[in-house]
Lab assay of single mutants.
Amino acid sequence: YQDQEQRILKFLEELGEGKATTAHDLSGKLGTPKKEINRVLYSLAKKGKLQKEAGTPPLWKIAVS
């Protein structure tokens, strides 16, 4: 689980600052079920590491501290 968090954070960091992506996109790029990706995304957002942008589907990006 920790491993997934690292992979997602790394992927988003590599996208570049301010760039956002969807759970669907992450799921495809990382070869992980979207349900699992979503769980990790919401967990990271709760920890303040990610920012969720409203929309359908929601967009995710690295939180700027």
Rank of each mutant, 00 (worst) to 15 (best):
R7E: 09
G48K: 08
P57A: 03
K35A: 09
Q4C: 11
V40T: 11
T32G: 05
S65T: 13
L41G: 01
K61V: 01
L30H: 02
A63Y: 07
G18M: 05
G18Y: 05
L41H: 00
E14F: 08
E17H: 12
S65A: 13
E53F: 10
G18H: 09
S27K: 04
V64M: 06
A54Q: 13
K49L: 14
L30T: 06
I37N: 00
L59S: 14
P58D: 08
W60T: 02
T22G: 02
A54K: 08
L41Q: 00
L12N: 00
F11S: 11
L41N: 00
L41K: 00
G31C: 12
K61P: 01
E5A: 09
A63S: 12
G16P: 15
L15P: 02
L15H: 07
I62K: 08
E36Y: 11
G48C: 03
S65P: 15
K29G: 08
G48W: 01
D3Q: 06
G55C: 07
K49N: 06
S27N: 03
Y1V: 11
Q4N: 10
K19R: 15
K49M: 15
R39P: 05
A45V: 11
K35D: 08
I8D: 01
G55M: 03
K34Y: 09
R39W: 05
L44A: 02
N38D: 11
E14P: 02
K61Q: 07
L59V: 13
L44H: 00
V40H: 11
L12Q: 00
K46M: 10
K19Y: 09
G16I: 01
L9S: 02
K35S: 11
Y42N: 13
I8A: 03
Q51I: 15
Y1D: 12
Q2W: 06
G31N: 13
Y1R: 05
L44I: 00
T21W: 12
K35Q: 06
V40S: 11
G31W: 03
P57F: 02
W60F: 05
L59G: 09
Q4V: 05
L50F: 02
K52F: 06
E5G: 06
Y1T: 04
I8L: 08
L9F: 06
L9W: 02
E17F: 04
S27T: 05
N38M: 10
E53G: 07
K34Q: 10
A23W: 02
K34T: 12
L44V: 00
K10E: 07
P57V: 05
L30W: 04
V64D: 10
Y1F: 15
P57Q: 05
L15C: 10
W60S: 02
D25C: 10
V64P: 15
L9Y: 07
G48R: 04
Q4E: 06
E13V: 09
Q2D: 06
L26V: 05
K46L: 09
P58Q: 04
K10V: 04
I37P: 00
D3F: 14
I62N: 04
A45N: 09
K46W: 05
Y42V: 09
G31R: 12
L44M: 15
E36N: 07
K47H: 07
L30G: 01
G16S: 04
L59W: 05
T22W: 00
E13Q: 12
G18A: 06
N38W: 03
Q2H: 05
Q4Y: 07
R39S: 10
K61F: 03
L15Q: 07
Y1M: 14
W60A: 01
L30K: 00
P58M: 04
G28E: 04
K46G: 10
K52W: 05
G48E: 05
R39L: 07
A45F: 15
E14I: 06
I62Q: 04
K10P: 01
G16W: 01
P58S: 07
L30P: 00
K61W: 02
L44P: 00
Y42L: 09
K52L: 06
R7H: 07
R39V: 07
D25P: 00
G55E: 04
A45E: 14
E13S: 12
L44C: 03
G28Q: 14
R7P: 03
L30M: 12
R39A: 11
V64C: 15
Q51P: 00
Q6L: 12
G28N: 15
E17D: 11
S43T: 13
G18D: 13
K34W: 08
T21L: 13
T22R: 02
D25T: 09
E17C: 10
G28Y: 12
K35M: 09
G18F: 05
E14L: 08
A45D: 07
T32I: 11
W60N: 01
G48D: 04
K34M: 10
L15G: 07
L44D: 01
T56R: 15
H24Y: 08
Q6G: 10
K19T: 13
E14N: 12
L12F: 12
K35I: 14
K46V: 07
I37D: 01
P58C: 08
F11I: 13
K52M: 12
D3K: 04
F11A: 14
K29V: 14
L15S: 07
R39E: 08
G48I: 00
L41E: 01
K49R: 14
A20T: 14
K10H: 09
T32Y: 13
V64T: 10
G28L: 15
I8S: 01
K47R: 14
K47F: 03
P58A: 09
G28W: 12
K47G: 08
F11L: 11
A23P: 02
R7L: 08
I8T: 04
K29N: 11
Q51A: 12
